[in-house]
């Protein structure tokens, strides 16, 4: 069984380490906040100027002046702080944020990522993604392994305009956990019940399989 979006987020949450500052992108990455493992303290950074981001506000208490980078109303936890966009990206470029989780349309085996533009069709802009991927030491991509037509998004090289080069270290998809190194995708884990052959078939880039590949544990 391939994972649903919530399970992808749940698997990524296992990567969180105690006392990390974490930036979560829009979409699946946002869901990671729902699955923080017990005993782990992390603080979420929202690049529009908020550290210590909390859950959505109780109905009726929402504040137009307190939103996240996805323009959703949020709350601020005790010990949180507010700042301007220049300081926010100083935190990001200055590598004070330990982990960035973001979505992607394509990832290539040398760690390039494309997620901001489909020429002639969709041009929404990169937002903070280019700053995040150019700076973070630790980048995890959350994505579906294939697109809606079944074509692989895990490629030898990206066909869409790039967001960043050689930056992705790890990918968690609905089928697998992959490590990106040595110009290849290393298969670390399979989704429960998904075979190595299924993952091979869904991966267009160079896939390295070493020994028995364990199933993800939840």
């Amino acid at each position: 069984m391939s994972l649903d979006k919530k399970q992808i987020a749940q698997r990524i949450a296992q990567e969180l380490k105690h006392n990390w500052y974490v930036n979560l992108g829009i979409g699946i990455p946002t869901l990671v906040a729902n699955y923080i493992p017990k005993g782990i303290d992390v603080e979420f950074q929202s690049e529009n100027g908020l550290l210590g981001m909390g859950p959505f506000p109780i109905e009726g208490t929402e504040d137009a002046d307190l939103i996240n980078a996805g323009k959703q109303t949020v709350t601020i936890l005790q010990g949180g702080s507010l700042f301007d966009s220049a300081l926010s990206f100083a935190m990001i470029r200055g590598q004070h944020v330990q982990l960035t989780v973001l979505g992607a349309m394509e990832v290539s085996q040398n760690g390039d990522i494309a997620n901001w533009k489909i020429p002639g069709k969709m041009v929404k802009g990169m937002g903070g993604a280019m700053d995040l991927v150019a700076s973070a030491d630790n980048i995890i991509v959350a994505m579906m392994h294939t697109n809606r037509k079944g074509a692989s998004k895990i490629l030898e090289s990206c066909s869409l305009p790039l967001t960043g080069v050689g930056c992705v270290k790890k990918i968690v998809t609905n089928l697998a956990v992959l490590e990106v190194k040595n110009n290849a995708f290393y298969l670390l884990e399979r989704a429960p019940g998904v075979s190595v052959d299924e993952i091979k078939a869904a991966t267009a880039g160079k896939l390295i399989i070493e020994g028995d590949v364990p199933e993800m544990k939840f």
């Binding site: 859950p55 506000p57 109780i58 109905e59 009726g60 929402e62 137009a64 939103i67 959703q72 109303t73």
Partner: peptide, 12 residues
């Protein structure tokens, strides 16, 4: 007006 773009809430 301070319009809210994405009103996301936790139900009471």
């Amino acid at each position: 007006e301070k319009r809210i773009e994405q009103r996301t809430v936790t139900p009471k």
